[in-house]
Design a protein around this nucleic acid. Structure first.
Length: 491
RNA sequence: GCACGGAUGACAGAGCGGCUAUGUGCGGGACUGCAGAUCCUGAUACCCGAGUUCAAAUCUCGGUCCGUGCUCCA
């Protein structure tokens, strides 16, 4: 089964093909660096990280370009409000961006172009568009003229130009554009703004031309994947189609348009005015970043996702179970594993059956990911595999076989949950159970209480045992009795 | 108004012509002094109407309801 992806332009799943065999050229619209990243950004870049990882896993050599928009109205506004130089705002937020993405275990793109470094290219494209009659010069800049290529209108959103045309009248506000549908390629300088030189005087580029210039510079006039959030469909990506196709003469410039869905909060659209606006940092103070990642890939990338307590709770549990089994496997590994039998789901021997189940889950995982990156289904397969592995660990087995199985389990988990889904921390992080200073602080006290509780339990003095547990709870510690004795951790 | 996408069990959310999705929650059982964790196991479903088919949650047509976009936004 070949990889299928949903192409927004064709509005259906299509067989994925690349221009060059086994090479993928992918561009994803990056952030405007005027502030910290929020949950919506996390979702978008995790979605494309997963796509990136799966393509690499499938044997493609991926050239991944993701830009920074480092000049625009909001950055200028932020600078004016705060008195901080816009360049500092940009640098700070780019640094924060990398930190946040690293925290979420998002692999780096190959190139992070910043649009201010491509002004020359943007000017060249704009000049060419003017020559070709697709753009015109006005007092306040250069505008792309939509009516010069009406057949390209609504290619992504399906909006009909006739309808817009009829209702449009002559409303063009106080700008130099001839038609309200036209969009800016170049904005003439306004007082107090950073500017660049151009044949049309000082000014700065329009938003849409940036992505066209940067994607073409790095990926050529045609490339395989262009991604971004669904909110970029209109007008940004449609503008890119106008610019790119009219400039290059290629149609399509982008072979596959991929768009991720929104993040809602408790059923409502996330927005600053509703006060339900979360930055990645806010939420990672409450939950482990990998749990957030789990929650966000536990939905198909095109579906809207509703962020709420239960989603995070579910994610936390499942992620915890994954790590627990992974840890158990790591601890049981051996240097010299004995050979394991061939897996077979119909075998009556548990370990043989489980090995077969793992193979089956792996196949299901691949099918799911090949089906337009269905990470939800893929996660279900990983959880299924985890359950099989857990079963084997709980069964009676020869020590050698168990150790060899553990090696196999580690490999399986690292392959799917680790390298593809990006849900695992480093091995040593799991094994060395990071020494928590808080834990060390109260360790003696807790252990003393646990000893007392053990005595109470031995003499079946349940009220005393429970009152000690209450005391521990007051310290913020919860106790769980296991086969190996009581364990404690912070609540 | 125009455009796009949805409606699946208590909840979240896959499947998209025949085969247990999955997870949380809930019921029963094992293990536990209790609780928790873990394991086994059970119940509950495909918006409405018509059609196509041996067979439809899955395809077609018609309804109803919901979300999103048409202004900066991942």
């Amino acid at each position: 089964m070949p990889l299928q992806v949903h192409d927004t332009r064709r509005r259906q799943k299509v067989d994925f093909s690349t221009m060059e065999p086994s090479k993928v050229k992918m561009y994803v619209c990056g952030v405007t660096v005027y502030d910290l990243c929020h949950l919506g950004h996390a979702r978008c870049y995790i979605a494309f990280d997963l796509i990136h990882r799966w393509l690499e896993y499938s044997g493609y050599d991926v050239l991944y370009v993701q830009n920074f928009t480092d000049i625009d109205d909001k950055i200028i506004a932020r600078s004016n409000e705060s008195g901080i130089d816009w360049k500092n705002i940009v640098e700070d937020n780019i640094e924060a961006y990398y930190a946040d993405m690293d925290m979420l275990n998002i692999l780096r793109a190959d190139i992070y172009p910043r649009c201010t470094e491509y002004v020359e290219e943007m000017v060249a494209i704009t000049e060419s568009l003017i020559e070709k009659g697709h753009a015109y010069i006005a007092d306040d800049g250069v505008w792309f003229h939509i009516e010069s290529a009406p057949e390209k209108y609504g290619l992504l959103t399906g909006q009909n130009i006739e309808a817009v045309r009829s209702g449009a009248g002559g409303r063009v506000a106080e700008s130099g554009k001839r038609d309200h549908k036209d969009f800016a390629l170049w904005k003439a300088a306004k007082p107090g703004e950073p500017t660049w030189e151009s044949p049309w005087g000082a000014g700065r580029p329009g938003w849409h031309i940036e992505c066209t210039a940067m994607s073409m510079d790095h990926l050529g006039e045609q490339f395989d994947i262009h991604g971004g959030g669904q909110d970029l469909l209109f007008p940004h990506h449609e503008a890119e189609i106008f610019q790119g196709e009219c400039y290059s003469g290629c149609s399509p410039v982008v072979h596959h348009w991929l768009h991720n869905g929104f993040v809602n909060m408790d059923g409502e659209k996330m927005s600053k005015s509703l006060g339900n606006f979360w930055t990645i940092r806010d939420i990672c103070e409450k939950v482990d970043p990998l749990v957030l990642r789990f929650a966000l890939i536990n939905a198909h990338y095109r579906s809207p996702i509703d962020m709420n307590e239960q989603l995070l709770h579910d994610a936390g549990r499942n992620h915890g179970r994954l790590l627990e089994v992974y840890k158990q496997a790591l601890e049981s590994m051996t240097e010299n594993p004995v050979p394991l039998p061939q897996g077979d789901v119909s075998s009556p021997i548990p370990v043989v059956k489980s090995l077969g189940m793992l193979e089956k889950m792996a196949q299901g995982f691949a099918l799911a990911m090949d089906d337009d990156f269905n990470s939800r289904e893929a996660v279900a397969k990983v959880l299924g595999g985890i359950r099989e592995i857990g079963k084997v660990f709980n069964s009676e087995m020869e020590a050698d076989d168990m150790a060899a199985f553990a090696n196999h389990a580690v490999e399986w988990v690292e392959e799917f949950a680790g390298s593809v889904l990006g849900l695992l921390p480093q091995r040593d992080e799991i094994l060395s159970k990071k020494v928590d200073p808080r834990r060390e602080e109260i360790r003696e006290q807790v252990e003393e209480l646990l000893l007392k509780r053990a005595d109470a339990r031995a003499s079946k003095d349940w009220p005393a045992a429970d009152s000690i547990r209450d005391q521990l709870n007051e310290l913020g510690v919860s106790v769980v009795d296991t086969a190996e004795g009581p364990e404690w951790h912070f609540m």
